[in-house]
Design a protein around this nucleic acid. Structure first.
Lengths: 197, 197
DNA sequence: GTCTATAGGGTGATAGAC
DNA sequence: GTCTATCACCCTATAGAC
């Protein structure tokens, strides 16, 4: 692996573990083994490196969310996505960045984060629409809202888990969300939709 | 106001705005107007000051959550608590701390955060139990889980709002959670409970 | 592309007079 | 309790040779 890529990966890891403000170029050099000169050759400033690392972290995460788009029963996809094993104590690579003042106040650094969330939101809206169409969810629920709710459960679950230093609250939060979704099945089948789907 | 109290309040504000790691004693002195000597007289280290500020921030927040405990209809209390106006772009004074590596890795600093969340969780569990007893929620829902889910919606809502620099996703997340709760009313009244309650 | 050397400014204190 | 002075170290680069 070349220096450039090594730097980006190392910075990505450190930003996940420690955030942006609290990660120094020095730590990146020490962990990656890349020298001072090389680092500043590839990335004139810490911010440039952070931007590359952030984009990499976002790219890492999006494939997972596209699990929501896959084929198959919508509620089954939702369930699979929510229940996928996650290490809650590590937090979310992307969501974490919103709490770093130096990221949050820098539109350029915040942009990849905003794009990532927007894309995941889109996947959620689609699968929720499908679930409603398939009469697995009441049709008076708003997919846009609900998408935000479910994303929030995930992001907030990390916060609860870290606060308690315990995976439990995260698992509970997701399981509880799933319980609510199951409870929101239409009580009486809708009048008319496509034959099978 | 005496220097000590002024320092604690200023540190509290700065930790809310910028977190712990990224707030320097110097900023605290400049914003508060308290001199170097006074500061280190009252608080030997930055960490001591942070601990006091954290406890103050927690104490600030808990009264709000006790709105859940109040008298009146349980679902109405839940609704009032969820819909209370909040500035989503500022984030949560307490939840924010979980993303600061220097707080998260320091059991002493993390303790007030953990206690605060535990206490809010308790209030949620109680009001949810009451809502189930009052047949406002299905009795197959688990109050412990659901409490974590709803706390997560709140905490995660802040993350979404900051990512998009828009209050909207936060409001959506909460409204969506409320929609789900309303959809989780028992479809047929339970067999037997207290007469009126 | 990578190396070593250097630098101005901030961080988190400590010392000691008043 | 509050003040000013000082300190060792770290942060984020920049310079310039190889």
């Amino acid at each position: 692996m070349d220096s450039r890529q090594l730097l980006v990966e190392t910075m990505g890891e450190l930003m996940w573990e420690r955030g942006y403000a609290d990660t120094s170029p020095r730590e990146v050099r020490q962990r990656s083994g890349v020298g001072q000169g090389s680092m500043y050759h590839h990335f004139p400033t810490k911010r440039d490196l952070a931007l590359a690392a952030l984009e990499r972290n976002v790219a890492d995460l999006l494939p997972g969310a596209s699990e929501l788009d896959g084929p198959g029963d919508p509620m089954a996809r939702i369930e699979a996505y929510l229940m996928r094993p996650r290490d809650a104590l590590k937090g979310c690579k992307v969501g974490r960045m919103t709490q770093d003042p130096q990221v949050r106040e820098d539109p350029v650094l915040l942009a990849p984060v905003a794009r990532a969330f927007a894309q995941v939101h889109l996947s959620w809206v689609n699968v929720l629409r499908e679930a409603i169409a398939a009469r697995e969810l009441r049709d008076d629920l708003d997919p846009e809202r609900l998408a935000h709710t479910l994303m929030a459960v995930l992001q907030g679950g990390y916060v609860l888990a870290i606060a308690q230093q315990d995976q439990g609250p995260f698992d509970d939060a997701l399981a509880g969300a799933l319980d609510l979704l199951r409870a929101a099945k239409p009580s009486v089948p809708n009048h008319k939709t496509n034959r099978s789907n």
